[in-house]
Design a protein around this nucleic acid. Structure first.
Lengths: 210, 210
DNA sequence: TGCCAGTTGGCATATACTGACATATACGAT
DNA sequence: ATCGTATATGTCAGTATATGCCAACTGGCA
């Protein structure tokens, strides 16, 4: 039951953080950990905010100070990864093709192991089981789309119209999402970055022209 | 204020329906109409179920017997169109290419005018204004994806792997969605089917290989 | 007519979420 | 070391969504 929290506790801590900040980070991680425990035990809907707050030893009011909604705690991890992808895309140079850049970044997004990997699988399973969560998840995908679109706009500059940028971003993210579920359906056995790369290759090949 | 309901009232009614069924259909449409009125007057969040029920002259309890949630009433129309697209795809023959079939169906989904067109624009504007609605909308897109995937599986038969079918469905729906917002951003001036066709053409051309 | 089934309203309740205020405590300055 | 302040948290009250239950009404039909 405590496995998530323990493995996190073993991670190297950021230094130079005051006690306040450390406690906050700890509380946040504690809530997230018990949330994933409860979700995988009872499912998402069956788990109440009250239960999560109880187990994490905070008041329900405090829960909402850390996560703006019940869905948020489920998706916070992936949301963070998306922000990271945005930063990585910022730095990405222009020697390679667009597809190569995206393949590298979307792939690296997915290459985390250990805790993140486990939670990613739990998340994918919950989403597959409960369609209502799909909506919230697709909202996340829209955020990723915005990051990708921003990157594309910068890389393509004046050469591409704004509509084409959004079209491309939508398509790339669709590939990313399809790849994740393809990976999760296979139980997480193969490597997600490989699946993403393969799917991108299929598209740039003639798959669309069947 | 009453314009939506009036224009609906002028539509030819299905016959052979008992009084009960007709009253039900009327109530449902009344709720939907006042909902769109209120949404475009005050925005989505500012409108409560109580208000909608009040104006539609039903109890809040009854509102939830017609629409399972507040979002549902906003998306019911598009959801119905998606079901219609599914039926149309069922009937579509095999003489044309996949892209041609999808172009025709997704296009016809979007070719309704009058009431549907107006509500579609209101919907798009609300979604653009309020990101929270985007999640719910993206959930709808996932339903459309399922319909498209079903169609693709039938048409491609054994020749394509299940993963490829889902990948293709995700990509096609991404194009559809990007096209809708491209259309709505332009104020609904150009023809949505044309935009969809153009975007599909761009993709089957070399856009991905930039 | 009178019964049956479907529809509705009203009430109670669970749950998600928010604002206001009070309290405790880490932090920074002396 | 300690004192004042900013920050984090808890408590409480309140709103909105959503659902179950039961009683009352009503259309459909024998």
């Amino acid at each position: 039951m405590e496995k998530h929290r323990e493995s996190i506790a073993g991670r190297p801590q950021q230094k130079q953080l005051g006690l306040r900040q450390r406690k906050k980070a700890q509380t946040r991680e504690a809530i997230e950990a018990v949330a994933f425990d409860l979700f995988s035990e009872q499912g998402f809907e069956q788990t109440t905010v009250e239960q999560m707050a109880e187990r994490a030893m905070v008041s329900p009011r405090t829960f909402f100070r850390y996560f703006s909604s019940k869905e948020e705690v489920l998706f916070a991890g992936e949301r963070e990864e998306i922000r990271r992808a945005g930063r990585l895309l910022e730095e990405r140079g222009g020697q390679e093709s667009l597809v190569e850049s995206l393949e590298a970044i979307l792939g690296s997004l997915a290459s985390e192991y250990g805790l993140d990997r486990e939670r990613r699988l739990i998340r994918a399973r919950l989403i597959s089981d409960h369609p209502a969560l799909l909506s919230a998840y697709m909202g996340l995908m829209r955020d990723l789309e915005a990051e990708v679109a921003h990157f594309l706009a910068r890389r393509l500059g004046e050469t591409a119209a704004a509509e084409d940028v959004r079209l491309l971003a939508a398509v790339f993210v669709a590939v990313y999402r399809a790849s994740i579920f393809q990976w999760a359906d296979a139980g997480g056995k193969s490597e997600l970055p490989d699946i993403i790369a393969a799917n991108l290759k299929k598209l740039t090949g003639g798959l669309l022209r069947i």
